[in-house]
């Protein structure tokens, strides 16, 4: 009976795995094929890997784009985690009527499509370009700033804080910790897996972000990876083998971040951490 159940679970997960990674495998296979074969829908790996990689590095500046994306994603992830967890903690633990109203307004900003606020936001950055050039249009700082504080992560941390035991806070207060100390020494370590999940998502969102970097970054040397890939695909006769190579390279960092972060998702962590 129990064995049956196990077999069923493994079969189910294996099917899900195959469905999930099939396009990923095709992507990897395509990076070894030439463009003509990719458009013909060839599934098997070919022999053009080296050629595609060489072409890619010769035709576009992929390394600077990786560096830009890397800087933006890492800075965004750290700032997001820090700011959003502070806010999520503050909204839930130090709950008050006033803060609840503010929280609802914060939530509201999550609901408008980004395309609708893009023009006013661009105008905002255009307005400060002269006075504060390092935050203005065409700077990495401008690409980062609006994306670090999002209602999404504040909401995420607040919902997780609801599962955080208040006893730990009281214990901290009795131990004479300051409010800040409680956050830093009790909350942060206890919520490690929440931070891990938020880090994965924040990194991925930032790494893949398209619309905002597209409009705010102008010079080619500041281009991020998604913008670079978008360029590759827009020619009248796109080289799909090369595009797939670029895509695989662009996908790896997020996959790796996930793989290393998910190790923190170990069941029953809670019991082992004491404040």
């Amino acid at each position: 009976m129990k064995k049956c159940k196990r077999i069923f679970i493994y079969t189910f997960l294996s099917i899900a795995t195959i469905v999930s990674i099939f396009p990923f495998l095709w992507m990897i296979s395509s990076m070894t094929n030439q463009s003509v074969d990719v458009t013909r829908g060839r599934l098997l790996p070919g022999t053009h890997l080296f050629e595609n990689v060489k072409k890619l590095f010769e035709t576009v500046d992929i390394v600077p784009a990786l560096v830009n994306s890397g800087i933006i994603a890492v800075v965004t992830t750290f700032l997001t985690l820090f700011i959003a967890s502070l806010a999520g903690y503050g909204f839930e633990i130090h709950r008050s009527k006033g803060k609840d109203i503010v929280f609802n307004i914060v939530l509201l900003t999550m609901m408008i499509p980004f395309a609708a606020i893009m023009v006013p936001l661009y105008r905002l950055f255009g307005g400060i370009t002269d006075t504060m050039p390092f935050f203005g249009i065409d700077t990495l700082a401008a690409a980062i700033l609006p994306t670090v504080t999002t209602a999404f992560f504040i909401f995420f941390f607040r919902q997780n804080t609801k599962m955080f035991s208040r006893d730990l806070i009281e214990a901290g207060r009795i131990d004479g910790l300051s409010e800040w100390g409680i956050f830093l020494r009790i909350y942060v370590p206890t919520m490690k897996t929440t931070y891990a999940a938020a880090a994965i998502i924040a990194f991925m969102n930032s790494w893949n972000n398209y619309l905002w970097p597209l409009v705010i970054l102008q010079s080619p040397e500041k281009r991020t990876i998604p913008l670079l890939i978008s360029n590759l695909g827009s020619s009248y006769s796109p080289d799909y083998g090369m595009i797939m190579t670029a895509i695989v390279i662009a996908t790896l960092p997020t996959a790796l971040v996930f793989f290393f972060m998910q190790k923190h998702f170990v069941a029953g962590m809670m019991g082992s951490v004491k404040g």
């Binding site: 023009v119 105008r123 255009g126 203005g136 249009i137 065409d138 597209l214 360029n231 827009s234």
Partner: peptide
Amino acid sequence: AQDDIIQKLNTGLSSGTTKG
């Protein structure tokens, strides 16, 4: 990319800032 040019132009021109 062509679509990117269209988006950048529209955003830039309609916001009234010619920077960039």
